[in-house]
Design a protein around this nucleic acid. Structure first.
Lengths: 125, 125
DNA sequence: CGGACACTTGAAGTACGCTTCAAGCCGGGG
DNA sequence: CCCCGGCTTGAAGCGTACTTCAAGTGTCCG
């Protein structure tokens, strides 16, 4: 208990600036103060873990704020999570598809033997 | 011949601002002027097509500038393209991998039945 | 009590690819 | 001759997730 921001950052593998940023953005509650320094309880790590989870799922900060409203690590992943996850899934699939298209273009460029780009276009390289 | 920027934009499906941006960034040569308005020949569409190609392969503007140096649509995709394409391929594969990880997390969230996030973490959801 | 050190703030900076804006110029039709 | 529409410019803005900076405040240890 009563951990200061530097220690939280070290343990969580984050920069202190990131933690302050999360607070500003409403992803973690306003910390208690000792003097003017923030002090945290152990629960902050749970909160940060949830943020990491959302991040690893591709959610933006704004989406994560929404996602975390009224949620603790002891809550179940409710219908709001499922709904947002479905939407995000579409986005992520789209990203995968686009990256695959890029990969196809790159492979074509690497292997094609057309004498000019013009021919490439015709041949679909 | 002697097409003005608005018409080029319309035909290429781009905004005029994008074309001016490409010129500033050195992706297309400085256009001739009629008065102070830019005028283009048909070759500009070839150039724009090459830019689109690079873009569709995931290259940044800076990379594209490098890629296009001394290249026309009549040039062959030389060793420089192949070299840069190989590097970019690694990046793109990484993007695919990350997006796949996101997808896995999202699917887990959508299907998991853990009573709390804490249990999720233990179960690897 | 003094000094080192961690912390505080708001503002600005970063990378990326453009877009948007304000203010002004130019040519052609009525 | 005047106006409209399309063009010009440089500067600033956008969205994302933070980082960095300068200048100041507070705490802890000896």
């Amino acid at each position: 208990m009563a951990i200061r921001i530097g220690e939280v950052a070290r343990r969580a593998g984050l920069a202190t600036s990131a933690i302050r940023f999360y607070e500003r953005e409403g992803l973690i509650p306003k910390a208690d103060r000792r003097g003017n320094a923030r002090v945290y309880g152990d629960d902050v790590f749970d909160r940060l873990a949830l943020i990491e989870l959302a991040k690893s799922a591709g959610f933006t900060v704004a989406e994560t704020r929404h996602l975390l409203r009224g949620v603790s690590r002891r809550s179940p992943p409710g219908p709001r999570w499922r709904r947002l996850a479905e939407k995000k899934l579409d986005e992520v699939e789209a990203r995968i598809a686009e990256a695959r298209r890029m990969r196809a273009v790159l492979k074509a460029v690497m292997t094609c033997e057309c004498p000019t780009f013009e021919d490439c276009t015709r041949a679909g390289c």
